[in-house]
Simulated scan of single mutants.
Amino acid sequence: MQDTTLLQLITDDIAPAQHLLELLQAESIALHGRDMLEMERILAQKQALVIVLDQHGRRRSQLLASLGLPTNRNGLEEVARHSSVGAELLKAGDELTALMNDCKAANEENGTLIQLQQIKTNNQLSILNGGDTPTLYDSRGSTSGKARPRPLSQV
């Protein structure tokens, strides 16, 4: 009985994990295009999926722990060894793990892209605000001074 419940919990998470991966890929496109409206829509959907996946993951872990098994691949293998649906259980577990690893990689790529965009934005703001940029020239042809804030109209 526990094995079929565990299998159902895993298979129920495959579709949301696939949808999360698709959202992360769409997020990458929105980040490249700096489409903030699309980003807001994606973020709302991502948050809902992450909550569902987290809750289901906790239920799977609790189920394995209640059987006195580790809450990882080893515990899943132990359940599969004594189950008539063992092969399906391991296959579904591997599929879910692969999807979650793909989601993690896509999320890390998006995080890196966000950090790069923040650096670029900070550099642009520094230039606009007259930060430490001795190679820039003001409207009179002289180099801009350090730490001398200028109105944006004089940039």
Rank of each mutant, 00 (worst) to 15 (best):
Q124P: 04
L90F: 03
Q124C: 12
N101E: 08
V85M: 05
N101V: 15
D3Y: 09
I29S: 10
L31H: 07
M39G: 03
Q25K: 14
L136Q: 05
N107H: 00
T112W: 12
V85G: 03
I42A: 07
Q18S: 13
L53M: 14
Q118Y: 01
L125A: 07
E40F: 02
I51E: 15
D13R: 01
A26V: 09
N110W: 08
A92T: 13
P134S: 00
L24Q: 06
L128T: 04
E108G: 03
R150C: 08
M39L: 15
Q47E: 09
L31C: 06
G131S: 00
D94V: 05
E108H: 09
I51R: 12
L99Y: 07
R60N: 02
C103W: 06
L49P: 07
S126G: 00
L128D: 03
R59G: 03
N129I: 11
K91T: 15
N129C: 03
N122P: 00
G131E: 01
K104M: 11
Y137P: 04
I10K: 02
N110S: 06
D35M: 08
I14N: 06
H19S: 11
Q115R: 12
E95D: 05
S153V: 13
T5L: 15
E77W: 00
R59D: 04
A15K: 15
L53C: 06
I42P: 00
D132L: 13
E38Q: 14
A98R: 14
T135L: 10
L125M: 14
N101T: 14
L7W: 01
Q118W: 02
H56I: 13
G93Q: 05
T121R: 08
L152I: 15
A106H: 04
Q47A: 09
L43F: 11
R59Q: 13
V79W: 03
L113F: 07
L76A: 03
G141N: 02
E22S: 12
I10Y: 00
G111L: 09
G68K: 13
L6R: 08
T112N: 02
I14T: 08
L69E: 00
M100G: 05
D138C: 11
G68W: 10
T133W: 05
D12W: 08
T133N: 15
T11Q: 11
L6A: 05
T135Y: 08
A98F: 02
L31K: 02
L125W: 05
Q8Y: 07
A15G: 05
L37V: 14
T5H: 08
D12C: 01
G111Q: 01
L63H: 07
A30R: 01
E78Y: 04
R41P: 01
S83I: 14
M1F: 10
T112V: 15
N129W: 06
E38V: 12
P151K: 09
P151L: 13
A98T: 15
G57Y: 06
I10L: 15
Q62N: 12
A15F: 01
N107L: 05
L67I: 06
A87T: 11
K104F: 12
T143H: 14
N101M: 10
D102N: 11
S28A: 10
E95S: 08
I127P: 07
L43R: 08
Q115C: 08
L21R: 03
T5N: 10
L67G: 04
D94H: 01
H56A: 14
D35N: 14
E77P: 02
D138V: 12
L64Y: 05
